[in-house]
Amino acid sequence: MVIKAPDRITYTDGHSFCPGCGHGTAIRLIGEVLQELKLEEDSIIVLDVACGGMPIDVWRYDTIEAAHGRPVPTAVGVKMVRPDQPVLAYLGDGAAYSIGLAETIHSARRNDNIVVIVLNNCVFGMTGGQMSPTTLQGQVTTSSPNGKNMESGGATLDVVKLLSSMDIAYLARGAICDAANIRKAKKYIKKAMEKQLNQEGFSLVELLSPCPTNWKMTPSRCADHIKEHVTSIFPVGEFIGKEGEQV
C-alpha cells in the first residue's frame, strides 16, 4: 500500500506557500477527500484572491477564482447552474469573515447546498499580516504592534459560534497543528462533502491554520500556539450535523 498526496495536487512539484503554512495541508486534505469520494472529475472549486487563491496554480480541478472575498456567492451561482456537480468554496478568514462576511452569513441563512472551507489563520496573510476580525486579543500584527485590544481593534469574531444557531447542514472546526487534529479535519471535510451530495444544504468547515511568516514564529512554535492558545479561544469539534460516524 502506498500513501501519497493525490497526483492532482503534486503535478507542479511543489507550491509556493511559505514553509509550514497550513494552506499546503488543507489543499491535500481537500484533494484526498475528492479522491476518496471519486469527485475529482466533477467537482468545481471556487477560490479567493490572495493566499487562498494560490491553489489554482497547484491543483488540477475545475477551478474559478472569484472576486476578493466572494467565493461563497460565486459558488452559490455555480451550484445554481450545475446543481448535479459538487461545489466547494475555499477561502481564508479575511475573505469569509471580513470582506465577504455578509455573503457567508446570507448563504448560511438560505442554507445553500455548497461546502465552504475557511482557513482561519487570524491575520490578513498575503497583504503583510495585518489584524483581521479573527485576530486574538493581545495578538501582535503589523496593524496592532502593541497587541490587539478592544479599544483599537474591537472584539474577536467567532463566526462558527455565530453560525451555530442557524439552520444549516454541517458546521465544524478543525486545527492544522498535529497529526491527530489534521486527521480529524479531513473527516470534517469529508462529512461536509457527503452532506452536499445528500442535498442537505450549507456546510462550513473552519480550519485553524498556522501562518509562521506573519505570526513570526517557527512552524513548530505555531503548532504549539494553536494547541495551547488559539483552540482555547476557537474551540474545535463538530457543532451542527454531527450525527453519523463519530469523528
Binding site: V2, K4, A5, F17, G20, C21, T25
Partner: peptide, 15 residues
C-alpha cells in the same frame, strides 16, 4: 504520521 503533517507533500509511505 510524517505524511499527515507535511504541508509540502515530501513524504510518500510504502507499506
Amino acid at each position: 504520521t510524517c505524511y499527515v503533517v507535511c504541508p509540502d507533500y515530501v513524504l510518500e509511505i510504502h507499506r
